[in-house]
Amino acid sequence: MLNSKELSKEYGNFSALNSLTISVNAGDIYCLLGANGAGKSTTINLFLGFIQPTKGTVEINGLDVSQKATQTKEYIAYIPENLMLYPNLTGLENLAYFAGLAKKKYSKAQLVDFLNEAGLQAEAHQKRVSQYSKGMRQKVGIALALAKDAKALLLDEPTSGLDPQASNEFSNLLLKLKSRGVATLMATHDLFRAKQVATHIGIMKQGSLVKSFKADEVSLAELEKVYLETINT
């Protein structure tokens, strides 16, 4: 579903991403770990088509993102580190707006179902988003992924700043989407959540993917050890 081949991004002499080749299939959760500046967010931005690659290709559902940027966005949902919504609209209105932009038409009841499924309390649906916490906004983001019937989910440090309960709820939602066959690429610093939800883990350093393995091949302690060894060498 999500494929990159020899993907590189350079800013002048600085190489933000160096020849990244990864593949995230339906039902996979691929977690990219790495220190700040390792190239995780650059990878996500390249999949989103926000920036153009210097070399290589990015494909979503077999479509080249550089060529079919708008079309590939029909298949994806994106949750950034700090998902922001329109503060003067309610959660329900925000969901209706973004779902509409994705050319999805739903009744109010259907939208409410998506919000419920994403775990947003019913009393919050009609509240203005300016009163939402970060976790509540992330849930609207998940509801949008459900409404878009996204085949792939791109997450850029989505649990950063969430309290453990909200973070756990978010992990459960990812697992729910995974069970529906959604391919997820998540950039994160959170080793615990990565181990909890990932099917594959990659460790990045200075723009390169230096380690890649299946999540069930390592324990959390081993993951931490490998991670620290990788980024400190």
């Binding site: 989103l48 966005k73 994106y78 950034p80 922001m84 932009l101 050319k103």
Partner: peptide
């Protein structure tokens, strides 16, 4: 500036059109 642009840009709509 209010942070909604990334979510907006991840939708299948051209920003120019929007």
């Amino acid at each position: 500036e209010q942070g909604t642009l990334p979510l907006l840009m991840s939708q299948p709509v051209q920003i120019r059109y929007w």
